[in-house]
Computed example of a mutant assay.
Amino acid sequence: MEHFLGIDIGGTNVKCGLVSSEGELLEKTKYATTELQKENSTMESLVKVIGWELEKHSNVKKVGIGIPGTLSKDRNSTIDLPNIPDLAHTNVMGTLKAAYPDIIFHMENDANAAALGEFYFSKATMPDDFIFITLGTGVGGACIMDRKIFKGGNGNGLEIGHIIAGNGKTIENNIGKKGILGMALTTLEGYKGKSVLSDMGSLNAKKVIKAAQEEDKLAMEIFHEVGKYLGEAIVSAVRLFDIHTIIIGGGVSKTFHLVEKSMYKKIYDFLSPYYTDDLRIRLASLRNEAGIIGAASLCFIED
């Protein structure tokens, strides 16, 4: 059985994993991004980290890398990486191939990689076409069309988090973690009822999510609003691509049961029965391992 190395690069951590051709995560290592950046640039640190991993797993010949941001159409270089700015505008593939000439590398946007991983290794039966939405620090989007990643005209299509919502902000600004926190702080200011959020000290998105899961009224109202914005994003994506299966992943997806009602209301308000009669919306199955397994699944792409 062939093994691959999946590298999930994030603003907080660089996660590495040994993944089998069956999609099983055999081993995982996590490196704090800020620690890696203390002595070297992110690119220099990435070369070192991959070297350490290849030394541990000498049988690995293919490495897949997921990166949060826009990439060149040929998938050799990064363009804009808001969460890792010093890795932007870097010839990542050229540097890695020079350092490890015997290794085959693949690089892709992290949401695209996660969608591909779900396509190959989901515990549920997957269609040939689906839209994938990740809800986390940001809001990412991807599309598998005819069993392949849809990349758009210049390689960076389906940036669903940057669709403009009805309030004039992007979807990500509304329902990414910063958006959820901002909504909580604004709502709390004029709130006259009781809420556990008032007693939580310095708020963050995790605390708002926890409060909503404990059925705090104010927190649940916030996620009612989150559902509306998610519904708007789904309406736009379905209208543009005419794809009726939506898979939702990412850390914030654990609150999906809190957003469903308002999400579906928005969907049924704006989509005709042609779309809604066979619309399927469900959670991704790979959960927290989606980044690593998705990155490794890039190795299945023909060279």
Rank of each mutant, 00 (worst) to 15 (best):
T12C: 03
E232N: 03
N156P: 01
D278R: 12
D199K: 14
L71Q: 13
S285W: 00
H57M: 06
K38C: 00
G69M: 08
P68L: 08
P127H: 10
Y229T: 01
L26N: 05
W52I: 09
I103P: 05
I164Q: 09
G201V: 13
S236Q: 12
G69D: 04
N112K: 14
A111H: 01
T34H: 11
R239G: 01
A205S: 15
S20M: 06
I9T: 10
V196S: 12
L54P: 04
A211N: 02
A290V: 13
N76C: 10
K194M: 06
G227W: 02
V238Q: 14
P82R: 12
K62D: 11
I9P: 02
D146H: 15
G250I: 03
P127Q: 07
F119Q: 06
K169E: 14
E232W: 08
L116E: 05
P127M: 05
K217A: 14
T255E: 07
K254P: 00
E22G: 08
N204M: 08
I209V: 15
H224F: 10
I133S: 02
I293E: 01
F223A: 08
P101Y: 08
D269K: 00
A233L: 06
S297F: 09
V208I: 14
L240E: 10
V63R: 05
L54W: 00
A219V: 10
